[in-house]
Design a protein around this nucleic acid. Structure first.
Length: 795
DNA sequence: AGTGAGATAATTTTT
DNA sequence: TTATCTCACT
């Protein structure tokens, strides 16, 4: 049913069936058209080679897309196996499949609804042998890539030239997204430049390492698929013949490689390529949905021209605009329109709704990020206390992951359940990477990176020197590192080390020989027989107990995977886990507030939205503001955030922002001024705020000339009070445990920040006891008694 | 080979 | 602030 794991049949078989009759959109059953507005209906009904649906935020594009697909199936214009729908996240794919199934039932089986990356993995696995890879290839995530490049840089001593893992991997990624390969790029660049020359060497090494490890990086998945289709016309023809309808969501975020992939797949098929055809076949019908105002992935190579030039690129293209918004109130839309209107160079578009103005946008300026977080928490309590809104209807957005700290602190203290979407992901934890590395090594014995990771984890006495000896042996005999381990007798090593190596190799080989085994069982056995779990269990470090739990959690995840996909292999599991996106983690059922970056927020919607940290240097981010087009992209990011809100929108900022321990002044974002003043109800507007020292807040507001203000600030750099207070606060948080404190309604207490107040009510049990306190100065707050910085005053 | 103290570098967004 | 790296010591 729910195909999150996407393991549907490959069904190349039914391509041979006679093609259904089409193309005729007018036979679409009425229930698929009912309730659609005019342009939406047109978008569902239109038939032709190319269709661009310009879908403003909240304009019902998912609905249009699903109904369009359902229409194709219901009228028998297409078999499900002839449809390829591409989304950006697995969650979006699963949702789309579910909705189409809901509309047409069983008919939906066999459709390819997947992300670019997972569709490409599918193709690459099937055709791997064709061009010199093994079907068992594994996928390197950005952490793996970094680690690998770091080693290569060190090996070559290239670090002295200022090449860092970050810069090299970013550059390789960018070039791959532009469909360059090492050789083609080498021809275009002058090697006079020593930096380019060094980079080229590294890239060559890197690709060689990947190939040797039978692995692809994220960017390879797309570009290699394109190369494959170009190099093997017969293979390409099979896919072109199969997919008669291709639909692409979030088209504005496609990069050059993804564009090329679409192009390849939509080319006509001739009998010359595929003799069994009765006649030539026109290219697949292409439908793309997108909104150039929501293009926020330029840093990842997304090219806005893909959507702006669509009509020129694809012949006979039809363009349909969806502008009526069904999500947000008019106030929210007006703010969004005003902000995005400052981006020149865009097709004019105006979102509107007929559902009324709604509440005003609420603005807040805090003294610090902490203060701002407190505002967020207070508002969430307010919104959810009436019972009209639940925690899962609320989301908090921020530009950088680092901003979560203050928010989490306050939310915990206020006992508001929350979930951070993305950020430090489960799969990025060291112990999870270790466990995954064991699995990868089993599935893909050539993967030296994973093997190196686990070689001495847990400690087996295989140190760097031994590893180097193994590697040297492997290089000398042109065998893999794994083979070198098997042939450890050929190397002069101590008997203890040699035995450890042999044991490990034997353990891994045992499971490599059973690729069809239950992944959950494999993992459990690997963890216990390798000594990994024992090592954690015996450790006195309390953190290791948590790590052990995480490993057990992974085993449970693996088991669940197998339960849902009984035929799934270890390789299937690894593929799926390497392609999970942040948004996939969202669990609608949980009663939790969602915290996420503005990037992750795209495609989602919530009743109430908080956008935090709307400050210069943060939004626009200082790094992005430098890049060409960066300022406009950051504005789009803000726009995306605003348009996620259905009912309530909160915009907040702080006058000081702490980053790596240091407190810095912050100025209101330039984008804030772009929202008409009448739309925002400022609790505390930026202009009236004073710095804690009594000095005027940093930055400018409205009429104030920016230049003079900034200069003015520089002239009197006044350090903010911090040092002693901070130390104190830290000590307190570590030692504090108020669980013994008994509070009852009517008690007087004193809070570190809020001053004195009277307890109104106490709810919850044990560690989760929450006191509702009416403070004399700070109003009503909810506090988690166990950890709140409070003391009870004698009555 | 393994450990730990102390230095030091890094933080934009992500499939 | 945190994660990672280096180097000296066991």
């Amino acid at each position: 049913m729910n195909d999150l794991w996407g393991l549907h049949d490959d069904g190349f078989g039914d391509v041979a069936r006679p093609s259904p009759i089409g193309p005729r959109g007018d036979g679409i059953p009425e229930h698929l058209l009912a309730g659609l507005n005019r342009p939406q209906r047109e978008a569902v009904e239109h038939r032709g080679p190319a269709l661009l649906i310009v879908a403003g935020a909240g304009s019902g594009k998912t609905r249009v897309l699903t109904h369009r697909v359902a229409g194709l199936l219901a009228t028998r214009e297409a078999w499900s196996s002839q449809i390829l729908a591409i989304t950006f996240t697995n969650k979006a794919a699963a949702e789309m499949r579910e909705r189409v199934e809901h509309l047409v039932g069983e008919e939906a089986r066999g459709m390819w609804i997947r992300t670019f990356h997972s569709a490409c993995v599918r193709i690459l696995r099937r055709e791997a042998e064709e061009f010199g890879f093994k079907e068992s290839f594994t996928i390197y995530d950005s952490g793996d890539v970094r680690a690998l490049i770091k080693r290569l840089i060190k090996q070559r001593g290239a670090d002295i030239q200022g090449l860092t893992p970050g810069s090299v991997s970013a550059r390789i990624s960018k070039l791959k997204n532009e469909l360059h390969d090492v050789d083609s790029w080498a021809r275009t660049v002058s090697l006079e430049n020593p930096l380019d020359a060094a980079f080229l060497e590294l890239w060559r090494d890197y690709d060689a390492e990947l190939r040797r490890a039978n692995a692809f990086d994220f960017d390879d998945l797309i570009s290699q698929t394109v190369f494959l289709l170009r190099a093997f016309p017969r293979v390409a023809a099979q896919y072109r013949k199969r997919f008669r309808h291709i639909l692409v969501d979030e088209y504005q975020d496609t990069n050059a490689a993804q564009y090329a992939l679409i192009r390849e797949l939509t080319k006509p098929v001739t009998r010359a390529e595929l003799p069994e055809l009765r006649g030539d076949l026109p290219g697949a019908s292409l439908t793309v949905v997108g909104d150039s105002d929501q293009s926020i992935y330029a840093f990842r190579g997304a090219d806005i021209r893909n959507i702006t030039d669509f009509e020129r690129d694809f012949h006979d293209a039809r363009v349909i605009m969806l502008e009526q918004n069904y999500r947000s109130t008019q106030n929210i839309l007006s703010a969004a329109n005003a902000v995005i209107g400052n981006n020149f160079d865009r097709r004019a578009k105006n979102l509107w709704t007929d559902s009324g103005d709604g509440a005003k946008i609420i603005g807040f300026t805090g003294y610090s990020g902490h203060d701002e977080a407190q505002f967020v928490a207070d508002e969430i309590v307010e919104l959810t206390s009436g019972g009209s809104m639940s925690y899962s209807d609320v989301a908090v957005f921020y530009r950088t992951n680092a901003q979560t700290r203050a928010l989490e602190e306050v939310l915990i203290r206020t006992a508001i359940p929350y979930k951070v979407i993305g950020g430090t992901k489960f799969y990025e934890r060291a112990e999870i990477k270790d466990a995954m590395a064991y699995l990868i090594t089993v599935a893909n014995p050539d993967d030296a990176l994973s093997l190196r990771r686990i070689m001495n984890v847990p400690k087996r006495g295989i140190g760097p020197a031994t590893e180097a000896a193994l590697q040297a042996h492997a290089d000398e005999h042109r065998i893999s590192l794994r083979d070198a381990m098997r042939r450890v007798d050929e190397i002069a090593l101590g008997p203890k080390v040699a035995a450890a190596i042999k044991d490990l190799a034997a353990l891994l080989d045992e499971f490599s020989a059973r690729p069809e085994a239950d992944p959950g069982e494999v993992l459990r056995e690997l963890m216990s027989r390798s000594g990994y779990t024992d090592q954690l269990r015996r450790s006195p470090d309390p953190q290791d107990a948590a790590r052990l739990e995480n490993v057990e959690e992974l085993v449970a995840v693996t088991r669940e995977f197998r339960r849902q996909n009984p035929a799934a292999t270890l390789l299937d599991f690894l593929t799926e886990t390497s392609l999970v996106a942040a948004a996939d983690e969202l669990d609608d059922s949980g009663g939790q507030v969602s915290l996420m970056t503005l990037h992750t927020a795209k495609g989602l919607e919530f009743d109430a939205v908080f956008i935090t940290g709307i400050e210069e240097e943060l939004l626009p981010h200082r790094m992005a503001a430098q890049e060409p087009g960066g300022e406009a992209e950051e504005r789009r990011l803000f726009y995306v955030g605003i348009t996620r809100a259905r009912q309530r929108l909160h915009l907040s900022l702080a006058m000081t922002r702490a980053q790596f321990g240091e407190v810095n002044p912050a100025a209101p974002s330039r984008y804030l001024e772009e929202i008409p003043a009448g739309l925002i109800d400022w609790r505390t507007p930026p202009s009236t705020m004073r710095a804690p020292s009594g000095q005027r807040a940093v930055g400018r507001w409205r009429d104030e000339p920016r230049e003079s203000f900034v200069t003015g600030y520089r002239d009197s750099p006044k350090p903010l009070p911090k040092a002693p207070k901070k130390e104190f606060a830290n000590m307190i948080t570590e030692v504090r445990d108020n669980s013994a404190m008994v509070l009852e309604p009517g008690d007087r207490i004193r809070h570190k920040d809020f001053g004195e107040g009277r307890v109104q009510a106490v709810t919850g049990l044990d560690k989760k006891r929450v006191a509702e306190v009416l403070f004399d100065g700070a109003g009503r707050k909810r506090l988690l008694i166990k950890i709140a910085p409070i003391e009870k005053l004698s009555p």
